[in-house]
Structures are given as C-alpha cells and as structure tokens.
Write a protein that binds this DNA or RNA. Sequence first.
DNA 1: GTGGTCTAGACCACT
DNA 2: GTGGTCTAGACCACA
Lengths: 142, 142, 142, 142
Amino acid sequence: MMIRVDPGASAPVFQQIVNEVKSAIARGAIMPGEAIPSVRQMAADTLLNPNTVAKAYRELEREGIVYTRRGLGLFVAERAGPLARSRRREELDDRLRRFIAEARRAGMTTAELRARIESALRETPPESPARTAAESLRRAPR
Amino acid sequence: MMIRVDPGASAPVFQQIVNEVKSAIARGAIMPGEAIPSVRQMAADTLLNPNTVAKAYRELEREGIVYTRRGLGLFVAERAGPLARSRRREELDDRLRRFIAEARRAGMTTAELRARIESALRETPPESPARTAAESLRRAPR
Amino acid sequence: MMIRVDPGASAPVFQQIVNEVKSAIARGAIMPGEAIPSVRQMAADTLLNPNTVAKAYRELEREGIVYTRRGLGLFVAERAGPLARSRRREELDDRLRRFIAEARRAGMTTAELRARIESALRETPPESPARTAAESLRRAPR
Amino acid sequence: MMIRVDPGASAPVFQQIVNEVKSAIARGAIMPGEAIPSVRQMAADTLLNPNTVAKAYRELEREGIVYTRRGLGLFVAERAGPLARSRRREELDDRLRRFIAEARRAGMTTAELRARIESALRETPPESPARTAAESLRRAPR
DNA sequence: GTGGTCTAGACCACT
DNA sequence: GTGGTCTAGACCACA
C-alpha cells in the first residue's frame, strides 16, 4: 500500500494516514479481508512514530473501515469498500461546498469559479504517479 | 461590516476573521479609506475575545490590507482591493488544487469530479448582491 | 468533581475516567455548560499522565458528552445529561445481560441468581462515601 | 462439548474457552473422568489458533479442573465439578459486585437497579436444559 | 492559560 | 509477531 504523508502540511499527520488508507480502499487498492500493514511496519515505512500510526488506525477502526483481530493485526472490513468511498466523498463534498461558499463570499461569480476549476482540473494530471511516503519524506524531511 | 464566524469550525477563529474581512474588501462591500470596526466593537459584535480580534487585525495589517492611524483606528488601504482579491484567490486556488488532488487520489475520475462540482455549484446559489441590514448600518469605529 | 481511578484494575485507566465523568454527569454532579477540569488539572488530581486524561476527554467529546472551545477548555454539552445517562445505562444493561447469560450458562437457576443479586445488593451500601482519586491512589499506589 | 467463542468480544479468547469449559463442567454437561477434545480438535472446531487453545488448557490444568494423562489427552478431574462451580461463581460474584457499585455510582437507586435486573432476567430466558445436537455427538479426543 | 500533536520508549496481553 | 496502554516530555496554535 502506497501512503503519502507530508509532515509539513497543515493537516495532522495521523489524519493524513486515515485519509490515505480510506482513499486506498475507496479506489480498490486494498480489498476487504486483506490485512493493512502493521503499526510497526507502517511506522517504519513512513518514518513516523508508531503511536502516530496507531492513532490513525484506531480512528479507522472507530469508523468501521477496519477491524482488529487481537494478536493478529488489522483487517479491512467486508463492507469497507462502499463505506470508505462514501465517507471519503462526504468529506470531499463538504470541503467542496465550503470552498464554493467561501469563493462566492469573496466575490467570485459562478462563471469565474467554473473557469478556475477547469484550469485547475487541466493542470493537475488525472493520474499522478504514486510516490511512496518514504520517498516524499526524503524530499521534504521537515 | 457583516462578519460571520463559526467558533466550532476547524479553521482558527482569528483566521476566519481575516478571511471575512478580505472577502468583504474583495467583493467591494467595504472600500479603501473606510474604517473597520475597532477591536472592542468587533469583539462585542461577534462575542469573541478581543485578543482574538486583535490577532486577526495584526495579520491584516501585516499583509498590508489595512493600516493603523494612531488614535483613530484601522483603515482599509488604498491598494487593498486588488491586494485582498489576489491574496484571497491564491488561497482559494491552493485549496482547490489540493482538493482535486485528494479527490483523484480517492479514485474519482475527472468526469465524476465535474459532476460533483456542478451539483455543488447548483445547490449553493450565489449570495444576493443586496447588502444585508446589518451591513448597511455600518458603524463608525470607536 | 470526584473521580475515582484504580490503576490496578483490569479496565484501562482512560476508560475509567470516561465512565467516571459520564457517571458524574448522569447523577447530576456536573451540569451542562459547566467546564470539566482541564487536562492538566485532572492529571494533577489523579496523578496520571496528561496524555491519559486527554485520551479520555477525546472519547467524551467523540460521544458528544462534552465539547471543546479552543483555548478555553472542555464544557459539558447541553444535552449531555440525558445522553450520559442513557449511554451509561446502555453499557451497564449490556454488562448485566452478559452477566446473566454467563451465569445461566454456568448452570445457575433464576432463583439462585436472584438470591445472589439480593445478597450483593445488601452488602454494598447504597451510598458509599466518595473518595477522591488521589486518596485511592495513595492507598493502592500500584 | 459445545464451546461458544466470540473473537470480537472484549474478553480474551483463551479466557472465554476457560470459562466455557468451566461452565460446561459446572452445569454437568461434561462429567469427571471424561476427556475433553484435544488441542488440535478444539482448534479445528472453533477455528482458533492451537496456541490459544493450548493456553486455555494450561490455565484449566493450573486450576486443577483438568489433568493430563501423558499420551492420552486431557481429562476432567474427579473433584472438578464443585471446583469449577465455586471458581466460576466467585468470578461471577465479583463481576456482580463491581456492576452494582458502578451502577450506583452512575446515580441508579436500588429500586431502579432491581427493576432493571428483573427486566433483564425476564428477557433472557434460561437455556433449555436439552443438550444441543453438537453437544450430544461428543467426540472422543484424538 | 487551554487542548492537540508528535516523538520516544516501556510494558502488557493476546495469538 | 500483533495492537493497546501508559508515561514522559517537547512543541504548537489558539484564546
């Protein structure tokens, strides 16, 4: 599983992990029943402290995306696919709506908004090549 | 000046004030040379701690959007219109790009994204350009 | 607020804090709108690490019993009274049902169960004098 | 022997096995001198890891409920009946007392407690004394 | 002052 | 091996 974490971003690192795992499940990169990397493994991969990873995993379990089998590890829940997808999209939809509300409040017309959105859609390629967390961390080591 | 602040939102309150003032200037609701409400006035209006308002005002001054006239209060800078507009749009553009990147990472296709954006644009209609009552009875500062 | 914590018990300490706060709200010892002791204060009172207290408080917030006002502290939610009461009773009812199921599975008749329950009810006085956590910690310092 | 184990429950799986075996002996479903299923058999029946079953059996042996006959397997001790019964009831009594203490701390009166207990007793009727099918086709160990 | 995040490392129980 | 809990202490943003 490819996880991207940016320790310099404003969002908490543990939240980034939560989002990344949800995204990975939402796009089908991990399937129900599969295990997700152990806390220690993920911590080693991302160069993060195990506690930070554990906090993210606890949140994923709380949301019903994964479940714990004691002594064995964490596994993707059966119904995690649609669940992760819907959760992630609700979050993204909320962000989108807040964005639009703020943009309009800043005086942007709908036409202007559409133009900016189209330009942003064009400038970010639809399939950015995945980069591992370890790699991205090396490039921006805080 | 009509300021909307939500203490429960994830964004810091002082940042919300900064954004709201910038937006008000960007959309022309408040013009260069006009005064903005005093820290105390704004704190009373919004039920916020004066320290929080003061921090927001410091930030606005730091960005050159407003300037202090000793003993008189804070005034909107001459060049504040374009400045506020460009600053606000840079921030919004950044958010937009991050949003698109995350949505794609969650497995959304460009077509899906466009559909959701259109739907969000339709469901939040632009604010009516008429000024609110609160806005029209703009107070002199201090 | 009187909080009892037993570090030697099988239940995690942070969970004991959650239960104790819920109980305090359920029995009316803290009222909606009131602040609960700050993380640092509670940590000092209970001789626990602030992180442990913070973890408990996070859970209480997640359940909607308390809410955070940034920079100010944690406050009991308006609807926390009934909420804490119902949550706590659901938990206790679950325990009760599991207890009865296990007892029956161990071969106890309903009559035997009733006898044991009556005897247990009699031997624990209805109003045990409150003892502070600090006190109980001193008596059983691990 | 019919063993019910819930891997998702809060109690450790090995402890559930211990309790289930004790309960089976306590209620007379399995008699002194009889063999209990081998570790492998029980592991296969319950889909659990043999190590987990072995740990449970070690605990049962430590408590004197069962004993090992080298090369033959594990057998229920002669005095196991009363022993299992008393052990199990001590544990259940402890739970009961803790339950009552916590319920009172949450503000429940003795009258309320009695009402809830009566209701819980009524809604979970005692298990029918008839042995289950699985139990009746008890297997010889190994 | 407040809570939130993160790191570091120890210990534990379970499988 | 696994996750969970707890301690300790640093740093940060916010009010």
